[in-house]
Amino acid sequence: MINGIKFMIDMYVSGIVYAACLVFAAGFLCKIYFGYYKTPQPLKIPQTPQPTTLSGVIMRMAGDVLFFRSLAKGTTLLFIAGWVFHFTFLLMIIRHLRYFVHPVPGFLVALGNGALAIASLLMVALIILFVRRFMDKKVNYVSSFADYFVLLLIMGIVQSGIMLHYERFRPNVVEVKAFMLELMELKTPFLVMIMHPHHAPGNPLFITHLSLVALLLIYFPFSKLMHAGGYFFSPTRNMINNAREVRYINPWDKG
């Protein structure tokens, strides 16, 4: 009986991790390749400020991606909350690398010291974004269930993650890491397929945390979260403003 439940948990945990990674990778790449890369852009439509050189465009896009410069021109609250959210989220993802690499490099250990503070900041930013979406009448008007859902999902991930930090809920970290490293081995997916999964950590909160992350990954390619890869294909941002100098060819009207 116990063994049966144990087996099902092992199968579930291994299964969702693989399913999530597969759906995310395949969905994301398909969207990027067929949806954005392969769709032609007939005319050059770079938006002001329009760099006239490639390096200028790279600087411009770096400014947008790293410092949200376009957003900074508009609303300050959204800019700050949005930037803090993305930046701290990125730091948390980087910190989680320690479960996937061995030995753990020094900077990941150092990052671990500030992890709780970073996660708390992330939560605060999420709460601000959520409340703003709800309270600002204009933003509320354009928001639908999906917009709140993503915020709540990430809040769930962050909250379960913060709780895992505390002794009371903490899983056996050594066990977690061993499991993750096993999952990354090439033979493991085949073992799961023939119903021989590795032993997964049984901590219910850990399984919740992992499940929510898997849900986020699966949801990613079908949602507005595609802005992450999509930005790089945005013709108002990634085009060089030199149509007079260098003839730009319309892919479906080559003249």
Binding site: T39, L78, K138, K224, M226, H227
Partner: peptide, 23 residues
């Protein structure tokens, strides 16, 4: 959607952040 990447992409990637609502 097939001829204009702009249109196709802009259908997908809006997060409805509200930066444009009062512009």
């Amino acid at each position: 959607l097939k001829k204009y990447r702009s249109v196709k992409l802009f259908m997908d990637i809006c997060v409805k952040c509200g930066a444009c609502v009062d512009k």
